[in-house]
Amino acid sequence: MRLVASPGFVTACAVLLAVCLHPALPIAPPPAVTAALALLLVVGLFAGARRAGGRIVGLGALAVAAALGYDGLRGHHGTLTLEAGSGTNRYEEEGPDGQPLGLRPLGFDLVAEKIEPGGAVLLRSGADARLVVGRGRSASQGGLRIGLADTVPGAEPSVLRISVAGPQGSRLVDVAANAPATVDGLEIGLERYFPDFALDAKQQPYSRSNEPRNPAALLGVRRGSASWRVFVIRAMPGIHKPEGLDRVLSLTEVVPREVVTLRVSREPAAALALGGLLLMAAGAALEARPA
């Protein structure tokens, strides 16, 4: 017990736990190691406390450790992806390391009514419950907290509107990654997309940014056994006319897909963790008083 109560023990546990928790650590330590260090720190804080402030810090640390442990065992995390107008009643649950655990029921229906360009999403749950989530704003529903995920794939403009000009006039088709379009017997697929097209020093194409400032694409076009690769760029319609292809393809527009990815979390002990941290802060502040 003398070892556990020693200042060096508390220091070692706190520093090791800090290292384990830091997101820059290349390899995440096993949860059992982190939990063991947290418990040892709590025991050390209680055993080594000489004044009221130290005991309050220990009490707060106990509350935080209990909250994190409870949420680790009983909490849930996951994501769900919705298109504007679509709905779901389940989400893809993730484990502690982000590994997929399968679909889990939300316990209610969730419909994305509107997706704003800035990322704000108007959600409807049931008949009259309306929620708004966005950057820095999440909402609660049915014991779950719903927020915008860090990465919003739906915000990327990924549908290209292609004009196909031929003897009978022009037609417009939408082409997206893994979603080829068929028009006039031609199957048009997207091979590469450059939102902000440029050529590097070796004359190789690349994209300067993810913003569609100078969109261009390489399309794979097939008709029966014949196939062509056609380069289209919005700034220069119809620039590339491959031999044997009797159509002129041009990129006319980049249409943003209205899809959003939401993060879903159930953390029933969040309030206890917050209270524990505040208690620890109060205890540390009390330690500042002269003995």
């Binding site: 997101p23 999440s138 927020g147 993060r263 979390s265 953390e267 941290l277 620890m280």
Partner: peptide, 21 residues
């Protein structure tokens, strides 16, 4: 973001633990 399990919390928690240490 709907969760307290974020990188920002982990960084702040690390600093707080080093303060305790």
């Amino acid at each position: 973001e709907g969760t307290y399990a974020t990188d920002a919390v982990a960084r702040a928690g690390t600093a707080a633990l080093l303060g305790l240490g």
